[in-house]
Design a protein around this nucleic acid. Sequence first.
DNA 1: TTTTCACTTTAGAATAATTATAAACTAGAA
DNA 2: TTCTAGTTTATAATTATTCTAAAGTGAAAA
Lengths: 135, 135
Amino acid sequence: MKKIDIFKKLRSSGLRPTKQRVEIAKFLFEREKTFHFTVESLNKLLTKKSASKIALATIYNTVHAFKTAGHLSEVEVRGNKTYFDTNVSNHHHFYDSDTSELIDIDANDIIIQKIPKAPNGKKIKNVEVFINLKN
Amino acid sequence: MKKIDIFKKLRSSGLRPTKQRVEIAKFLFEREKTFHFTVESLNKLLTKKSASKIALATIYNTVHAFKTAGHLSEVEVRGNKTYFDTNVSNHHHFYDSDTSELIDIDANDIIIQKIPKAPNGKKIKNVEVFINLKN
DNA sequence: TTTTCACTTTAGAATAATTATAAACTAGAA
DNA sequence: TTCTAGTTTATAATTATTCTAAAGTGAAAA
Ligand SMILES: [Mn+2]
Ligand SMILES: [Mn+2]
Ligand SMILES: [Zn+2]
Ligand SMILES: [Zn+2]
């Protein structure tokens, strides 16, 4: 994803391409593979990488803005911190609790044969499979 | 589950059957169906139900002791609070985000046909399926 | 029974993640 | 350039949870 695309991505979401947002967006979206992170880990990586430091509140604001805009998804992981994911398509995860690392599983790599029907007037929004790993 | 069984359950886990633990254990385990709760919700329900009030720290201590003893499991739900589950067998969940309600799905009611192999020297510990509901 | 003491409870302080506040700053329309 | 709504930021506040250390208690042993 090029710089111009980052600008488009932000503008099309109604987000002004500020210095901070562009820097965070470049860091998050200009990469080949999915990136899973917490606000804390993102903050550390950004501090290490860049010259100018971005306030923690701005990182929270920006991550939430990106999530609301559909550029990030939230992954549920046991523990206190919230995990985010640059992969916003329907997919699943391996989770290695030793390293606290998430690994993507393509939606097509898991086939569910039998599934119960949703209760009382409810519908199924989506199905998430979480595979816990051990050594 | 009878009172005597509650005592056995506690003793066999190396937990002294104190007044507080017995009261919490009776509330949690003397019921037909699975009970999903947060420490906050449990605290409210116990306060409503019982005469003597139990300190919040004791509820935290007790819930963790029960979890460590294998009498409770933890369910991962999007959000800030930790959810616990009196169903400690391998099973899955529906989640209704409108009501923040969890509903059990028996392990046999979901059959997974295709699953990717675990990465590099890791093994699969368990597979959790989470079905999000909508109206 | 009484004594004893490790285990437990408790109120309150501490911590950690996240969100709110409100003042200073800035992108970009006019 | 000016102007202003949107944004950033330092800091305070909030929320869930854990820690601390003093007081209380179950139950083994005397
Ligand atoms: Mn979580
Ligand atoms: Mn959670
Ligand atoms: Zn992912
Ligand atoms: Zn359950």
